[in-house]
Design a protein around this nucleic acid. Structure first.
Lengths: 150, 150
DNA sequence: TCGAATGGTTTCATATTGCTACCAATGGAG
DNA sequence: CTCCATTGGTAGCAATATGAAACCATTCGA
């Protein structure tokens, strides 16, 4: 596993963490594979059936995610077929998946259109994720800025 | 603008907000365009120079983002060339961009590798975004679940 | 032990991306 | 007003990525 080497051809923007994350998981399928892994999918067939993805593309994406340290394969005791599971880095994408989910809920559904819902342990809806500054006040693109490194 | 119609061929997974968001902005470039728009980019040339993206692809992505209500064009007084700006829905992707950025900072850089940093108004580093349940306790994939709709 | 399910690989067609050249419409300098 | 560089694209073509279908070795359950 190698979590700090870019795709073939190098990073899109080597100093920007957003660009690096997009390079690693920002394609049509990777984040949905990760979403399903968080929802319990673990076998090749699990992912294929849930996603309707082409087999060769799934092979490639699973391999990439393993190579980049987002997924790992493990062999259950007894020499069974191996399963895919999220690494710690993969689990840590939970925040990103929640952010994508909440934006979709707010902006990609008509008011009367049903969609799946994320619930906490007690069956309550998960509150909205809000970036805050050190003073605790909600932050937006206009009240923050990026300091580039040299 | 039409924020609730999918890409050609329909949605990847019509009931999942994560999938819808990925359908709209989950390609190699869209989120980086949005990142740069949040950082002040507004003209075709701004985006092209910052991203090094092919001109025809940039044309296509800007058009898609406008069509889906993430960006809008406005013409400054005096009949100048138009500029691209984020809509409210586009601004609302700030949380997602922050989540991608923070994951990248944690997992896609070696310890000694420099990267750009997001600062709040007062110049302080932005604290980590943490999804929480209704009881306020940090949430993870294992302490939450998705309720699918019928 | 046999047959079905699993987890792929290969091949080929199609779609997407990117490079380069081209072009019409600003818009600033003189 | 008249140039001429810049801006904001298009058009055409080559390279790359994606997807559908066929094929195949291994594993697992009956």
């Amino acid at each position: 596993m190698d979590v700090v080497s870019g795709p073939a051809g190098g990073w899109t923007d080597p100093r920007c963490p957003v660009a690096r994350t997009v390079d690693l998981v920002g394609d049509r399928w990777s984040l949905l594979i990760i979403r399903d892994a968080m929802d319990g999918a673990s076998s090749f067939t699990d992912f294929r059936e849930r996603l309707g993805i082409a087999r060769n593309i799934l092979t490639d994406r699973l391999r990439r995610l393993v190579d980049h340290g987002v997924l790992a394969t493990s062999t259950p005791p007894g020499g069974k077929r191996h399963v895919y599971r999220l690494t710690d880095a993969g689990q840590d994408l939970f925040t990103t998946v929640v952010a994508l989910r909440q934006w979709g809920e707010r902006h990609a559904f008509a008011d009367d259109e049903p969609h799946s819902v994320l619930l906490d342990d007690n069956g309550g809806a998960v509150p909205e994720l809000v970036p805050r500054g050190q003073d605790g006040r909600p932050l937006s693109a206009t009240t923050s800025h990026v300091r580039k490194t040299t």
